[in-house]
Design a protein around this nucleic acid. Sequence first.
DNA 1: CGCTGACCCTGACGGC
DNA 2: TGCCGTCAGGGTCAGC
Length: 270
Amino acid sequence: MPELPEVETTRRGIEPHIVGRRITAMRIRDARLRWPIPPGLPELLAASRVESVARRAKYLLLATGRGRLMIHLGMSGSLRVVSANAVPGKHDHFDLEFEGGVVLRYNDPRRFGCCLWLEPGESHPLLAGLGPEPLSQDFSGDYLYQLSRGRRGPIKPFIMDQKVVVGVGNIYAAEALFAAGIRPDRAAGRVSLARYEGLSEEIKRVLTSAISQGGTTLRDFVGGDGKPGYFAQSLSVYGREGQPCPNCGKTLKNSRLGQRATVYCVTCQR
DNA sequence: CGCTGACCCTGACGGC
DNA sequence: TGCCGTCAGGGTCAGC
């Protein structure tokens, strides 16, 4: 999936194709996702216009006059703009068809994603309690430092916790911790303010850089317009277990933290 | 409240 | 060629 840069790349990719356009139909082929696609959606959406495409955390929010479509790409989901005659494939769960022959197609092999509906003005429990956006002013080293006091769990799951800060997934958590020189298994509560300031800066830098390059291409992610991202070439540690550290040359180590692969350098990260 | 681990699902890949 | 175990970008939930 799509971590924040991939979702943002998708948002930017689909936005110019669908904003201001009228939806002519929604076609559901397979409603089975993390939660079933609400069966009444096609009727709700028909003839309404997409007013904006926003992102909160890893959720995409498509606003119409009648409410908002809330879409998550899960681990393997993608949203692409395709032509009206493009033949649907396996795991193409639904299409949003627009006037002018534009089709927005949702694909998700693993079905960890979702497509839900919000009434006008309605919020959603999934959006409540989310931490700040990492690229906003609200996210800082001081914020991380204060929140982490007393926490004994490792710092990597801490910064991947969406209640702490949204959008930092397994790839960018590993990259940011490497850049900040912090061991992923260090207790979150035992990292200094100065190091949290460095970490928050690296998180912002890594995410910004990844967004500018269109995200990271791995397996099944493709950007909204069908073009791949290029950030994979910039990865320092993620997926590079056994290879030399780009900084000191020592072999990068892999361990599991919270059931997620965690690659780091025992020399450069303390 | 904080933390851990099971679980949701399909597909790709490596070893035998 | 096929079978089997392992792993994959995320997140929820139960239990301690």
